[in-house]
Amino acid sequence: MISKLIFLVVIGFLSTTSSIYAHPVAYAGSNSIMTWNSQSMSDWMLTHTFESTYSLSARYQRIETIEGERTFYIPHLNFLLKRWNELDSQANVYLSMGHGGEKVNHSLKDTSFLAFETDWESRKYYVSFREEALMTYKKRASNLYMSKVRMGFAPYLAEFNELNSWFILEAIKQNKNKDSFMLTPFVRLFYRNVLVELGVSQKGESQFNFMIHF
């Protein structure tokens, strides 16, 4: 696991491509790969941004729930509904929606996806809120809902082409996880087009997030 992590970080740092911040919608013509991984889930998302206001993602999610392991394949559209650009800060509102499938006995069953996200960030502080729903072919009680709040600060102001470091606290509430509430502090490092986050929850579950834009 550690060697795989180091490999991914090295590959990312050696990449010569450019990027912007790890939002679901980036600049026109850009691509991104984002992944979030822990013992209880694995989430991979490949995104292409067509315009600065919308992008298309292909997503794979494996989630350990109280009903067992569930796997989803969801293509979805992401829209930047509103952005506020100020001299010292930026705020955004995003909406994502899609329709795909949940893998059940070698076939895919209809699943819809909806997410709302808003954030505000300056060079020193960062806060975001995300609400996400996976509505499955099963009865409504099987739907997965997640609320996520993140807050962070940068211990120093990094210039362009310097290593950026952040401390982030993440709170997640999920209706189908064994741990319905998870509090995870993260260390976030990013340089050029690569972002890495490492965290350990209050329950001792480690998490590794990785994002690259090109």
């Binding site: 990027s19 911040y21 600049y27 001299l87 300056s122 362009f160 310097e162 834009h213």
Partner: peptide, 18 residues
């Protein structure tokens, strides 16, 4: 150019590439 919303080096990378 004085740019609004450019709050991190990721933003700078995107602008530079553009």
């Amino acid at each position: 150019v004085t740019v609004k919303g450019m709050v991190c080096s990721f933003c700078s990378q995107g602008i530079t590439k553009k």
